[in-house]
Design a protein around this nucleic acid. Structure first.
Length: 566
RNA sequence: UGUCCGAUGGUGUAAUUGGCAACACAACUGAUUCUGGUUCAGUAGAGUCCAGGUUCGAGCCCUGGUCGGACAACCA
C-alpha cells in the first residue's frame, strides 16, 4: 500500500513508446487534433495474448489521449470466418477490460461503399478487370528480384471493365476466372504494388451478408478505406504490413479520400515455449492435441482466463513488455511474474493437499474437533479470516516429509518438530510403511497443546510450517497441474521440423486424490485462490460441488526446489 | 542481383532527442517472515553489431559493411 503514490509516479514517468511519440508529434504540430484507433481482428480464430498486446495498445492509446477506439471485424473472406469467432472475440475484449461502446463495426458493413469505390477506381482508370487465371497471375507477377509483366487485359477500356465488374457482381462468372486489379506498376520493387487484386469472386455464404455478394474486397483495399470511413487517425498494425503501407496510401490517394489515417507498424509479441499463430493454434485444436481453444495450456485469452489469469495481470504484462519495431521473444517467466504479482494481492489463501500423507496425532483427543482461525489474505486485512477444522487425523503433503532428511530440509522427518500452519507444533514419532513396497503409509506424531495457534509460550522456534487439512473434514478434489505446452523455447524455429514434435508430453498432470478445506464446497467457479505454499489455483468452469476441479494457474516461486536443482 | 524494416546486459524496454547507458524480468547474496510465498536491502552482468566520418563530445547524426526479419494467397 505504501506504493500507491510510487506507482502513480512510475506510471507518469513511464517512458513513451515510439507510437506515442508519433502521436505526441502529430498533436503538437496540429496534424491531428484527436486520437482515434481501432482493433481490427479477423473473426477466423480465437484471440491470443499477442492480440491482447494489440488490444491494450489500441484501446490504451485511446484512453491516454482521451480518444476513442473502435472494434472492427475484418470480415472480407467468407471462407474462413464465422460468428463463433466474433462472439468469442467480443467476450475476450470485454473481459480484458475494454469497451467499444456503440462502435462495433464490420468491414462487411461497408461492402456497398467499397463496391462504389471500386467503381470509382475503374472509372478513373486505376483499375481493370483481369481474366488471367490464378496461376497466370502468379507467373505474371514476377519475383521479388525480377519484375513482373503486364496483364493483356490491363489496357482494356473503362467501359468494358465496368461492365465486366458488374457481371462479376451479378455472379455471371466462375470463381477464379475474373478479378478486379489496381493498375499500378508491374515492375515495382514492392510486390504489393504489382497490380494487386482488389476484388475476387467467391461464391460463398458470408456470416453476415449471406448470399448477397459473390465478390469480396481484398484486405489492402478494404482495410484502409474502412479506417478512413471510421475516421481512424492512427491505424496500428504489425510489422508484416509494413510493405503494404504504400498500397494502403495509394488507394486513399487514388480515390481522393480526404480522411487520411496513418498506418503505423509495431512488432508482434512472441512468447517463449509457445506458438502465437492462429493457424498453428487451430492445428492443435483440430488435431485434439489440446482440449479446445480455451485449454488452459493455450496462449489464447480464453485459455489464460480458464487457467486463472486475471485481466489486470495481462494488461500489466502488456504495459511491461513495451512497444517497438524489433523482433522480440518475451520470456514466459515475465507473464508468470505478472500473474503472481496480481494474484498475491487479490487471491484468498486456502489449505489444500495435493499428494496426501496421513498423519495421526497420537496424543490428540479421539473425538475432539477444533476450529482453527486462519487468515484469508495476509496482504489484505479486509479479507478477514475463516475457521478451519482440526482433528486427530490429518493429511499433509508427501513432499513435506522425508525419512532421511538433509539439514537444509526444514519440514517433517523422524524426531523433528514443525508447525502446522495456524494450529500446533507436532513432532514425528513413528513412520509406518508398507511391508512389501516399503512406501510410507502414515506418520504418527505428537502435538504440543501449548502451541495452539502456532506459537509456543516458551519461545522455541521451528523452522518449518506445513499446510494440512483435517482428514475427516477434507473434501476430495481433482487438481490439474499445467506446464509449458512445448519443451522447446522456440517450437517454430527449427526449419523442416514440425512444431508439434516439440509438444511437452507432461504439460498436463491430473491429480485425483487431492484433499481440500471443507470451506471450498460452495466456492464459485472461476474463484481465484492461493493454495498455501503451493501456488495459485482457480476453480474450473466444469467444477461441481460434489466433484471439485481446480486448475493450477502458476506455482509459487520456490527457492527450495531451486536450491535442490543445484 | 530487388524493396522495406530492424540491431542496446541472458530476455524485454528506456536514455531529457548530441552530454559519462537506466528500468523490469531472470540470476545471485543477505535480512524479515507462522507460506522455503510476500516484503526489504544489496551483488553481478552490456560500454550500445562492425569499420570509418562529423563533433569539444555519438547508443542517438552521416557513409559503407555484417547479421536478422518481412514481402512472390484471388489470406488477413
Amino acid at each position: 500500500m505504501k506504493n500507491t503514490n510510487e506507482k502513480q509516479t512510475n506510471e507518469t514517468k513511464k517512458p513513451v513508446n515510439f507510437v506515442q511519440s508519433i502521436i505526441d508529434e502529430d498533436l503538437k504540430t496540429g496534424k491531428r487534433t484527436e486520437v482515434h484507433t481501432r482493433f481490427p481482428p479477423e473473426p477466423n480464430g480465437y484471440l491470443h495474448i499477442g492480440h491482447a498486446k494489440s488490444i491494450c495498445l489500441n484501446f490504451g492509446l485511446a484512453q491516454q489521449y482521451n480518444g476513442i477506439c473502435n472494434l472492427r471485424f475484418d470480415d472480407t473472406n467468407p471462407t474462413k470466418e464465422d460468428v463463433e469467432y466474433v462472439e468469442s472475440i467480443k467476450e475476450d475484449v470485454h473481459w480484458l477490460g475494454f469497451d467499444w461502446k456503440d462502435r462495433m463495426f464490420y468491414a462487411s458493413d461497408y461492402f456497398e461503399k467499397l463496391y462504389q469505390y471500386a467503381l470509382q477506381l475503374i472509372k478513373s482508370g486505376n483499375a481493370y478487370v483481369c481474366e488471367l487465371s490464378g496461376d497466370e497471375i502468379k507467373e505474371y507477377r514476377g519475383t521479388p528480384t525480377r519484375p513482373g509483366k503486364e496483364s493483356p487485359y490491363r489496357n482494356r477500356s473503362v467501359e468494358e471493365s465496368l461492365s465486366l465488374f458488374e457481371q462479376m457482381r451479378e455472379g455471371k462468372f466462375e470463381e477464379g476466372t475474373h478479378s478486379l486489379r489496381a493498375k499500378i506498376d508491374m515492375a515495382s520493387p514492392n510486390m504489393h504494388m504489382r497490380d494487386p487484386i482488389v476484388y475476387r469472386i467467391k461464391k460463398q455464404n458470408h456470416h453476415r451478408t449471406g448470399d448477397k455478394w459473390c465478390i469480396y474486397p481484398m484486405y489492402d483495399f478494404a482495410h484502409g478505406i474502412s479506417d478512413a470511413i471510421e475516421g481512424i487517425t492512427h491505424s496500428i498494425c504489425t510489422l508484416e504490413f509494413e510493405v503494404h503501407r504504400p498500397l494502403y496510401d495509394w488507394f486513399l490517394i487514388a480515390l481522393n479520400i480526404d480522411s487520411r489515417p496513418q498506418q503505423i507498424e509495431f512488432a508482434r509479441l512472441n512468447l517463449s515455449y509457445t506458438v502465437m499463430s492462429k493457424r498453428k493454434l487451430m492445428e492443435l485444436v483440430d488435431e485434439n492435441l489440446v482440449d479446445g481453444w480455451d485449454d488452459p495450456r493455450m496462449p489464447t485469452v480464453s485459455g489464460l482466463r480458464r487457467r486463472g489469469y486475471t485481466a489486470a495481470s495481462i494488461r500489466n504484462f502488456a504495459n511491461t513488455i513495451g512497444v517497438a519495431k524489433r523482433d522480440n521473444v518475451i520470456d514466459v517467466a515475465l507473464l508468470e511474474h505478472s500473474v503472481r504479482e496480481d494474484l498475491n494481492k487479490v487471491s484468498n489463501r486456502v489449505m489444500s493437499v495435493l499428494n496426501p500423507l496421513k498423519v495421526i496425532i497420537d496424543n490428540y483427543p479421539e473425538n475432539l474437533d477444533e476450529e482453527i482461525d486462519a487468515i484469508n489474505n495476509p496482504e489484505d486485512a479486509s479479507k478477514g479470516s475463516r475457521k478451519v477444522p482440526f482433528s486427530k487425523e490429518l493429511y499433509i503433503e508427501r513432499d513435506d516429509f522425508m525419512e532421511e532428511a538433509p539439514k537444509k530440509f526444514f519440514r517433517l522427518a523422524p524426531g523433528r518438530e514443525v508447525r502446522l500452519r495456524y494450529a500446533y507444533y507436532i513432532t514425528c514419532v513413528e513412520v509406518v510403511k508398507d511391508e512389501n513396497t516399503g512406501d510410507v503409509i502414515e506418520l504418527h506424531c505428537t502435538y504440543d497443546p501449548e502451541t495452539k495457534g502456532g506459537s509456543s509460550p516458551d519461545g522455541r522456534k521451528v523452522k518449518g510450517t506445513l499446510h494440512w487439512v483435517s482428514a475427516k473434514h477434507a473434501l476430495d478434489a481433482e487438481v490439474r497441474l499445467y506446464d509449458r505446452l512445448f519443451v522447446d523455447e522456440d517450437p517454430l524455429g527449427k526449419k523442416g521440423v514440425d512444431f508439434k514434435k516439440f509438444l511437452n508430453k507432461d504439460s498436463l498432470t491430473i491429480l485425483n486424490n487431492c484433499k481440500v478445506e471443507p470451506g471450498l464446497k460452495n466456492a464459485a467457479n472461476g474463484s481465484l485462490l492461493q493454495f498455501e505454499r503451493l501456488g495459485y489455483f482457480c476453480i474450473d468452469k466444469d467444477s461441481k460441488p460434489d466433484k471439485l476441479l481446480f486448475n493450477r494457474t502458476v506455482a509459487l516461486r520456490d527457492s527450495w526446489s531451486k536450491m535442490n536443482k543445484k
